[in-house]
Structures are given as C-alpha cells and as structure tokens.
C-alpha cells in the first residue's frame, strides 16, 4: 500500500455535509443523493448561500446532515415553504429534498404549482416507489403488482391506478426550466445524476425557472432486499416504468447542460 501522503487526494467527504452519522439504513441511496447535492454545492461554492428545506420522510433530518442553513417542512409542503423563503431571499439558493410520498402524494399540489409559477427553486425528488419512513406502504409511485405493507398482494392498478410519473407531468408546465430523471443504481448513473444536480442548481442561479432532478432510489429495508439486490431491482424493474431522460430542458437551460 502506498502511503497516502505521497498521493493526491481525489475524493473526500464534501464540506456541505456535517460530520453527523445519518439514520439511513445501510446501503440506502438517500445517502448517495445527499452526497451528490453536497458535492454540487461545494463545487459551485454555494454552501454559504444555500437554504435547504427538508421533507417529512426518511430524509426528515436532512437539515442536520447538510452543513447548511435549513428548515423542516410539513409533509409535502416543502415547495410552498421554499417559495416563501425564495421570495424573500431571491439571491439565495433554495433547495427542497423530497421523497415520493411527500412530493407525489400529499404534496402534489404544492410541487405542481411551484413548477407552474416557475419558482426558481431546485427540487431533489427521491423516488423509491414506497413510503420508507412509515414502514413500506404503497406510494402513488409504487410499481404495478409491487408488494408493500398496504398492498400485501401487490399493487392492484385497477383499484389504485398506475404509477404517477411526476417528471413527465411537470415537464408539461412552461414554468419548469429543467426536469430530468436520473438513477442512483450504479456508479455511471450516479455520475450522470451528479451532473444533473449541478445543472439544476445553475438553472436556479441564473433564474431560469423551476428545476427538478428525480432520482430513482432504493429502499432495501422495505423492499426486503440487500442493498446490492435493491440496486439491481431499480435497474430491472423501475427503469422500464420510469425511463431516465431529460423531460424538460428549456432553451436557456440547454446552454448550461451542454
């Protein structure tokens, strides 16, 4: 082994994360999403200008995990809370970090209207197709036939509808400047997710409108899998229902992402 001192440090824990150990289950990709957001803020030198709005869900303590000013929204209301902050502090970077129960179910009105207003905030939407924190109930994003604690014999789409595809929906709104879906299931996709987060935040900095990065994420605990199996499940089952891609990139945003 080569002594570290002779080498160049090429990766270290980002400054925008605190030293706190997270409460996330082992291998849960919420942690990856946190890391990427923190790395992006470090690289854009925005740590001191950023206000994070944490959700209700497993990421409820996100305001403790990020080394940023932060606050904690009511379930689903992060986009409204972020709107209040951004309107008063238009030169700060305001982020919401939300799960799929938070954003796609109880908070669907708030996210649609924030996007429709072209609110210059950035939403990190962590879609793990389940309610993680409350113990694995069905979410509007759960896959057809997916077994959850509230759909024990699998999601019956005849009774509960089809998975809600939020990125596709928000992309129809003129106020949305940058809406993309990425996945956290392998290093190559994580790299792409990171780039998208960087772009989304820059879209906000330039005041181009609402930006959101949807991240396909795992819940090994409630899916009843090992962390590695969960990554494979994302690839094998989620990608077909939630195709990755750029759903809305406004002309001005395109210049940034190029």
């Amino acid at each position: 082994m080569i002594p570290a001192a002779e080498l160049e440090r090429v990766y270290e824990r980002p400054e925008s994360l605190t030293a706190l150990h997270t409460n996330y289950c082992p291998g849960c990709t919420h942690g990856v999403a946190h890391r990427l957001v923190a790395e992006a803020l470090d690289e854009l030198e925005l740590r001191e200008q950023t206000i994070l709005v944490a959700p209700v869900g497993c990421a409820v303590f996100a305001y403790e995990y990020f080394n940023l000013d932060g606050c904690e929204a009511a379930h689903g209301r992060a986009p409204a809370m972020a709107t209040g902050i951004k309107r008063l502090l238009p030169d700060r970077t305001v982020l919401t970090y939300q799960g799929d129960g938070d954003l796609a179910s109880i908070g669907i009105a708030e996210i649609i209207h924030a996007a429709a207003r072209g609110e210059p905030i950035t939403t990190i939407f962590v879609n793990n197709a389940i309610y993680g924190m409350t113990g694995g109930q069905m979410a509007p994003t759960s896959l057809p036939n997916q077994r959850t604690t509230s759909s024990p014999s699998g999601r019956d789409v005849a009774l509960t509808g089809q998975p809600l595809r939020v990125s596709e929906m928000l992309a129809t709104l003129p106020g949305a400047a940058y809406i993309v879906r990425r996945s956290l299931h392998d290093p190559a996709n994580i790299r792409k997710a990171k780039k998208a987060i960087l772009t989304a935040i820059q879209v906000q900095q330039r005041g181009l409108g609402f930006s959101m990065v949807e991240l396909l994420s795992t819940c090994p605990t409630n899916w009843g899998m090992t962390p590695a199996e969960a990554l494979t499940w994302v690839k094998d089952h989620m990608l077909s229902i939630y195709p990755l891609g750029d759903y809305k990139v406004s002309d001005a945003a395109r210049e940034l992402s190029a």
Partner: peptide
C-alpha cells in the same frame, strides 16, 4: 390556504 400558510412558514424562517 395549505400552501399559503406554508409559504408564510418559509418566509417567517427568513
């Protein structure tokens, strides 16, 4: 009104 009061919540945080 749900959104309004949560906007107030955010704004009050500043």
């Amino acid at each position: 009104e749900v959104a309004a009061i949560n906007m107030v919540y955010g704004a009050a945080c500043t």
